[in-house]
Simulated scan of single mutants.
Amino acid sequence: MLWPFNHFSKPRGPLRGTIEGIYGMIVTQAREPLFYRDFGVIDTVDGRFDLLILHLWIVLRRFRSAEVSANVSQALFDRFCDDMDANLREMGVGDLAVPKRMQAFGEAFYGRSTAYDLALAAGDEALAAAVCKNVLNGEGMENARRLATYVKTALARLDRIDDAALLAAAWDFPAPSEAGGSRS
């Protein structure tokens, strides 16, 4: 189980570089302007957070099938938590409010992850509905379908790479336009 507040065992050595590389890829992809311009994701703190969680879920889902230890998944999740903590503090959230906000972030991650897992198993329309609710604030089913196609493309791309490439961060996410992101 990924525990959102397990900061006692920070990754060291090669694992730290792996986690930094993969988390950097997740953040970079979540900031891709095409998601905001062409998929209807609202370019706000909440919109960026929801897209970050979606990409983190994509990668952690692939880790489940990899021959990697649970420590790698936990370390990636811990890196996400550290980033959220730092962002809250940078935005001026007081020390007493940070734990409560971090708990809300953890609940959001687990709720969305469960919704995406269930929706993926239920089919394309269910995945689009989950994306619409969690990323697009319940608006824009056409954009949600295109974003769901992107998610499935990203999952398929990650499924095709071997575990060594996964851990070496020797892969990339598909461009949103590869998965129907550009509107003509």
Results as ranks from 00 to 15, higher is better:
L51T: 08
L51W: 00
L52C: 13
I53F: 00
I53Y: 00
L54F: 03
H55D: 09
H55C: 04
H55M: 08
L56P: 01
W57V: 07
I58C: 03
V59P: 09
V59N: 09
L60W: 00
L60D: 03
L60M: 12
R61D: 11
R61G: 12
R61W: 03
R61F: 07
R62W: 09
R62S: 10
R62G: 02
R62F: 05
F63Y: 12
F63K: 11
F63E: 12
R64N: 15
R64K: 15
S65G: 08
S65I: 06
A66I: 08
A66C: 06
A66P: 09
V68Q: 02
V68R: 04
V68L: 07
S69E: 10
A70K: 10
N71L: 15
V72W: 07
S73T: 07
S73G: 13
Q74C: 15
Q74T: 15
A75H: 06
A75D: 00
L76P: 01
F77E: 15
F77N: 06
F77L: 15
F77P: 10
F77V: 15
D78G: 08
R79Q: 14
R79G: 05
F80L: 03
F80S: 06
C81D: 03
C81E: 07
D82L: 05
D82C: 12
D82F: 11
D82Y: 09
D83A: 06
M84F: 05
M84Y: 06
D85L: 11
D85S: 12
D85Y: 11
D85M: 12
A86E: 09
N87L: 13
L88Y: 14
L88N: 14
L88P: 13
R89H: 14
R89C: 00
E90Q: 09
G92P: 03
G92E: 00
V93F: 07
V93I: 12
V93G: 10
V93K: 04
V93W: 04
V93D: 11
G94D: 13
G94E: 10
D95Q: 04
D95Y: 06
D95H: 14
D95A: 15
L96S: 13
A97H: 08
A97W: 04
A97Q: 07
A97I: 10
A97T: 11
V98Y: 03
P99H: 04
P99K: 01
K100E: 15
K100S: 15
K100P: 02
M102L: 14
M102Y: 05
M102N: 02
Q103H: 04
A104C: 05
F105E: 09
F105P: 09
F105L: 03
F105S: 09
G106Y: 00
G106L: 01
E107Q: 07
E107T: 07
E107N: 05
E107Y: 02
E107D: 12
A108K: 10
A108H: 09
A108Q: 04
A108D: 10
A108N: 11
Y110V: 11
Y110R: 00
Y110I: 07
G111D: 02
R112Q: 08
R112H: 00
R112N: 05
T114R: 07
T114C: 05
T114N: 06
T114D: 11
A115K: 11
A115P: 02
A115Y: 01
Y116K: 02
D117W: 05
D117C: 12
D117V: 11
D117F: 06
L118S: 14
L118F: 01
A119R: 02
A119G: 02
A119H: 07
